[in-house]
Design a protein around this nucleic acid. Structure first.
Lengths: 205, 205
DNA sequence: TTAAATGTTGACCAATTGGTCAACATACGA
DNA sequence: TCGTATGTTGACCAATTGGTCAACATTTAA
């Protein structure tokens, strides 16, 4: 009962997917204002008018891109399990976030851009769905602390630490590359080793 | 012998400073493409034509803003002292970066934006001056490790960790606020306590 | 096969953009 | 005081922008 139950044709499904995929690249490369409908259309291999036929406004394309990328991006946090071993659960989470940083770097940069802009589209999501999820996972961490399995800290800051330190490798890639010798594989292997070691040691009671 | 020794008048100094200061706000709020010369002029309280009289092109304004903000931003890293106590030196550095995140958040966001864009202006600086400074400071950390005062890690990842985790509070402020209860003062006090504790514990041999 | 629904686009529009320029205003050293 | 260097801006321009629309093309269900 969320939206009107309009049937979407095969061509609609294909073209909308193509537009959204191309638009992700363009928004990430040029930012919201710098991304033109023309560029998105060119990237998708169709005319500007046709893009506007599927998405009435540029902002609608942007919203669609944001929504499509969202689920994928937030997925790893879901799996933090209160019954698991904290060190193991957190290590897995760090590794998962780092993998996403590497292989879904466009999604990471898209969100970074959106939040840097003041999260005009995202804000309500942050305050509702994400907030709910984060509260639940903070409760898990608090429980681990109560059981004496982690040093006492305020859980939300731990999430910030994991998010920031892993996403850094995607969002600040040009800087990271300028300051690091060796190929991407080595970089991420080192980062994983480093972050898991330091953060887990830092949390050990 | 760096630049032509042109004398700058009082009015030049004042107006250029005013433009650069206003432009920082505008670039941060709207991004590079979204920032218009008109908006910058309005923020500086003068006509667009006058702004272009001082800075021939929009990009020149941007470069000036970047340069003006740079020195200030990089300052804390300079002071990492190999003869000091590592735990104390690093704690001070984390605290300094966190203070800057709070009180110079526009500078942090400006750099984040620039690097997200692929660092078109910044790249050569990253690869030269910053690289040199970072190499020097990594040598300091390596020395501390050799002396057995820190757990063995690759120093550059430690810098990434400190940068990302502290700048997160500036760059992702809308997200941080959406997920944190309490005022800004409390937030930063908690963050400082948390980051210093966890990172230093994580590095203790 | 056919006709209605759906898809596609070039041409077009008004608004905004970065940037120029000639004309005018002010500051300032001699 | 005065003349030149400096400062200031409205008017203007060409290019680009998001978005519209009428005309044409293709798909699809009957």
């Amino acid at each position: 009962m969320a939206t009107a139950p309009k049937k979407r044709t095969r061509i609609q499904v294909e073209n909308e997917a193509s537009i959204v995929a191309s638009a992700l690249d363009v928004f990430v490369e040029f930012g919201y204002s710098g991304a033109t409908v023309d560029r998105i259309a060119a990237a998708a291999g169709m005319s500007k008018a046709n893009v506007l036929y599927y998405f009435g406004r540029k902002e609608d394309i942007y919203i669609a891109v944001l929504e499509r990328t969202l689920t994928e991006w937030l997925d790893p946090l879901q799996s933090l399990d209160v019954d698991g071993d904290p060190q193991r659960e957190l290590a897995n989470y760090i590794r998962a976030k780092l993998r996403m940083s590497r292989h879904a770097s466009h999604a990471s940069r898209l969100f970074a851009n959106e939040i840097l802009r003041g999260a005009p589209i995202f804000k309500s999501y942050l305050e509702n769905e994400l907030r709910t999820l984060v509260d639940a996972k903070c409760a898990v961490i608090t429980e681990w602390i109560k059981q004496g399995k982690l040093v006492p800290i305020k859980p939300v800051h731990l999430l910030f630490l994991i998010w920031s330190s892993t996403q850094h490798y995607a969002d600040f890639a040009p800087q990271v590359q300028a300051l690091h010798d060796g190929d991407e594989g080595t970089l991420y292997k080192e980062a994983e080793e480093f972050l898991v070691t330091v953060i887990l040691r830092g949390l050990q009671p």
